[in-house]
Structure formats: C-alpha cells, structure tokens
C-alpha cells in the first residue's frame, strides 16, 4: 500500500515535507517505544508507530529499512531529529491519535500485517 494513501486516510502530518517521496510501499505496521525491541522485531517496509522521539529513532528506522515513522499522541521530535531524517530521506509523520485508533484504521484500509 502506498504511503501517500495511508497519510491521507489517517490524516497524518508530514514533518519533513521537502524532497520526500511519499510513494514508498508499506507492507506492514509495527508499534513500540523500546528501541532494542523494535530493532529485534520490526520488519522492512513497516510503518512504525511510537511515542519515542529520541534521535536514535531515525537510525533504527534506517537500519531496518522501515517505510516511515509516525509519532503518536502529539509527541514531536526535536528539530535536529527532523533534520537528520530529512538527510536520510526517512519520512517522519505525526498524529494526535493513539496507536490503537491508527492501527484500526490501517486494518480497515486493508493492511493486515
């Protein structure tokens, strides 16, 4: 499923708009805040929901080849994190919603993993 479709349907805000391609293919979803656990369990192509805003989020997402990161419940990363993600061409998104609400919407859209 194209990232753009998810952004539109879940009404996510793109935090680093410029130069970002939103056509990435998203194949699954992972939810978690403990980065060691995310590193062990998230899959390439996942969209990742988290409240963890530390800069290491970008590195973990890059390492695993994740399709994008959504910061939940109004949590926002610092400017240097957004800048790093822009350089790494990783799409950062935000939402005021909770993981459950967003994941339910994703499921209804047809993303089943």
């Amino acid at each position: 499923m194209e990232l753009k479709k998810i952004i539109d349907n879940l009404q996510l805000e793109v935090l680093n708009k410029s130069e970002m391609s939103l056509s990435t293919e998203i194949t699954g979803c992972y939810i978690g805040d403990l980065l060691s656990n995310v590193m062990a369990n998230a899959q390439a192509g996942d969209i990742w929901f988290t409240v963890q805003t530390h800069m290491n989020v970008v590195a973990v997402a890059q390492l695993l080849n994740l399709g994008g990161v959504v910061f939940l419940e109004g949590h926002l990363p610092q400017a240097d994190t957004i800048e790093k993600a822009r350089k790494e061409k990783l799409v950062l998104l935000s939402s005021n919603d909770k993981a459950y609400e967003l994941a339910s919407s994703l499921f209804k859209l047809g993303l089943e993993r």
């Binding site: 805040d33 403990l34 980065l35 060691s36 656990n37 995310v38 590193m39 963890q52 530390h54 800069m55 290491n56 590195a59 973990v60």
Partner: peptide
C-alpha cells in the same frame, strides 16, 4: 539506555 534507545547515541 540500551533497552530504550537501542544503543549509545
């Protein structure tokens, strides 16, 4: 630090 941030930043 290791559990939450995965490694030393």
């Amino acid at each position: 630090l290791w559990g939450h941030l995965g490694y030393i930043p």
